[in-house]
């Protein structure tokens, strides 16, 4: 294959190892092992909530359509990019967030309507390939319309302030991530549990034919499903933009894949699974990077995939999923 553009892993959003280590050193040798551990826990949780947000959308779509939306990360990225001009205009952070959600939701609905809906009845490979195509398309359309240079959201000074919890140092943006993520997940949970459409969505995932007999309309439900998933992705996208300070057309790719790993760990198709899986993955990645020597820690993205492969081999149904039986 002779591709024409290079992508290098490690350009994923993430504080570089050196920065993390130098921050730890700056805090002085007095920082005990316990504090370092707690710091990692805090960082891991923040990262984990981000992964959870992405994983929920993927899990929900898989639950109903039995398809893995490769383009989920790109929807995240599009939402963030559509929020950029709003940020540039000087809007407050919450407004930027709303813009991002609107952008990603719109993108998700368009993709679902134009491409996945006609392919609903196709074999799973077809949907997989189509979503690969969408992923590639979105990445490059955004690339074509903007430039390969990273974009920066307008700085929100409040979010950059450090936030101290005892010896643990975070930034306000991290707290914002936790708060917003928890709020979003709570809202989704309430929707799923206590509204009739939420119930219908859950029923559809469990037994499509029975749900249809109840009068649940599948196309409408699929749309709702994509709506929720894409909205959550948009939340994650804007949060990522604020946390790491830069966005490229490739910014969505790794979060999308890691969100998928989170969903698999928790049991794909399961909403609580995606949450738990995300947190586990965030903690795992942070601990691996934090405790391994520098030479090995660089492979952080590789480890995530190793985890994926391990989970798929050992317990493919994840923590909360049901093992799928093959009908003979």
């Amino acid at each position: 294959m002779v591709p024409l553009r290079n992508w290098t892993p490690g350009s994923s959003p993430g504080m570089t190892i050196e920065r993390e280590r130098s921050e730890a050193r700056r805090r002085g040798p007095l920082m005990s092992a316990l504090n370092e551990f707690l710091q990692h826990v805090a960082n891991g949780l923040v990262l984990g909530f981000l992964y959870a947000l992405v994983g929920i959308g993927l899990s929900m779509v898989y639950g109903i359509l039995r398809m893995i939306n490769f383009a989920h990360g790109e929807i995240l990225m599009v939402g963030a990019f559509l929020a950029l001009p709003v940020s540039a205009l000087g809007a407050p952070a919450w407004l930027v967030l709303l813009a991002g959600i609107a952008g990603s939701t719109l993108m998700g609905l368009v993709v679902q309507w134009a491409i996945y809906r006609p392919l609903l009845k196709s074999p799973e490979v077809t949907l997989l390939v189509a979503s690969l195509g969408v992923s590639l398309l979105l990445q490059n359309v955004v690339l074509m319309l903007t430039s390969p240079q990273p974009k920066r959201p307008a700085p929100a000074p409040f979010l950059d302030q450090p936030f101290r919890l005892g010896e643990i140092v975070l930034r306000n943006v991290d707290i914002a991530i936790v708060v917003v993520a928890v709020a979003a997940m709570l809202a989704t949970h309430l929707f799923l549990k206590h509204t009739r459409h939420g119930r219908a969505l859950r029923a559809l995932a469990q037994d499509m034919s029975a749900a249809r007999m109840m009068g649940v309309r599948v196309p409408f439900m699929v749309m709702i499903c994509f709506l929720i998933g894409s909205a959550l992705a948009g939340v994650a996208g804007v949060l990522i933009g604020y946390k790491y300070g830069h966005l490229t057309p490739l910014s969505g790719f790794l979060p999308g894949l890691k969100g998928f790993v989170a969903a698999v760990i928790g049991g794909i198709g399961s909403f609580p699974g995606a949450v738990v899986g995300g947190i586990i993955l965030g903690l795992l990645e942070t601990f691996l990077v934090g405790y391994l020597p520098d030479a090995l820690a660089q492979y952080r993205d590789g480890y995530v995939f190793l985890v994926l492969i391990l989970v798929l081999l050992v317990r493919p149904s994840g923590l909360f999923g049901k093992p799928e039986t093959v009908k003979v």
Partner: peptide
């Protein structure tokens, strides 16, 4: 310069 045009064409072909 239309960056990424080849990839877009590839993607459109896939889809």
């Amino acid at each position: 310069a239309l960056n990424g045009l080849t990839q877009i064409v590839t993607a459109l072909i896939l889809i």
